[in-house]
């Protein structure tokens, strides 16, 4: 594309003349073409002066409440530097996948050993596989036991940065909201006692968020969701 073609395309994008598929394609191209992205951002910034002329209008009183309800389960795209978990899959580290494979093996090995001592007496009533929000790969297995305890088995190693903790949550029902099951500095094979809750149901949400130390200040998830999944009963 020459400069005029790019200006033309950026112009159509900003005016809203591309259909959804073409707009998506344009955004993908922008990720690789800083000049094109710059043209669109500049023109959009200039044209937004027209939007700023709109006089504010009223809206339904519960609009914010509706948004808040949606936030509980909305997955977030994380800023790259937060955790090693995020960007790892996108670019192979020097030396290829070997270091990652090794860390997964270590995590699985540790889980297996701990499991033989910790969980022999009980079978989980529910199992949830929590997926990494960055690339939807399985990152943690949660086993839920009848005594309200949960066992975490990490499949990837990840840790909270200094001054923050990983906090494990479940959502027994939307009315109660998310309930904390415990906090830990880094993903490891661990059993958390958990508060007394009704028996989990199939499809119940489990997630781990990043929170300020020593845990969410509000008692609800405030930080980005790192991994998330839904419970399913094991076949007996």
């Amino acid at each position: 594309m020459n400069r005029e073609d790019k200006l033309d395309l950026a112009g159509q994008y900003v005016l809203g003349l591309l259909d959804e598929a073409d707009a998506k394609r344009f955004e993908t191209t922008c990720a690789q073409d800083p000049e094109l992205a710059g043209m669109a951002a500049q023109f959009a910034g200039q044209m937004s002066r027209l939007d700023e002329t709109a006089a504010p209008m009223g809206y339904r009183a519960d609009l914010w409440t509706r948004i808040e309800q949606q936030l509980i389960t909305a997955p977030r795209t994380e800023a790259a530097p937060v955790l090693p978990l995020q960007a790892r899959r996108k670019t192979a580290p020097p030396g290829g996948w070997w270091p990652l494979a090794a860390s997964v093996l270590v995590a699985l090995g540790a889980g297996y050993l701990a499991g033989t001592t910790v969980t022999r007496t009980a079978t989980p009533t529910m199992i949830a596989v929590l997926l990494n929000e960055a690339d939807a790969s399985p990152a943690v297995i949660i086993e839920v036991f009848a005594d309200d305890s949960v066992r975490l088995v990490p499949l990837e190693s990840f840790a909270a940065p200094q001054g923050q903790v990983l906090q494990v949550w479940t959502l027994p029902d939307p009315a109660t909201g998310p309930v904390s099951l415990g906090t830990l500095p880094a993903a490891r094979d661990i059993r958390l006692a958990g508060p007394s809750l009704p028996p989990p149901e199939a499809g119940q949400l489990y997630e781990i968020t990043l929170e300020p130390f020593p845990g969410s200040p509000t008692g609800r998830p405030t930080g980005p969701i790192l991994v998330k999944g839904f419970a399913k009963p094991p076949l007996n």
């Binding site: 992205a37 710059g38 951002a41 959009a44 910034g45 937004s48 939007d51 700023e52 809206y59 609009l63 509706r66 948004i67 949606q70 936030l71 909305a74 997955p75 977030r76 795209t77 994380e78 800023a79 790259a80 980005p224």
Partner: peptide, 28 residues
Amino acid sequence: VQDAFVAVWQRAAQFDAARGNAMAWLIT
């Protein structure tokens, strides 16, 4: 606007202050 605020919550980390102004990003 409801959908947009959920999207802002999900994607705020993608906002690049060096490349655009915040209000224009929100409006976009």
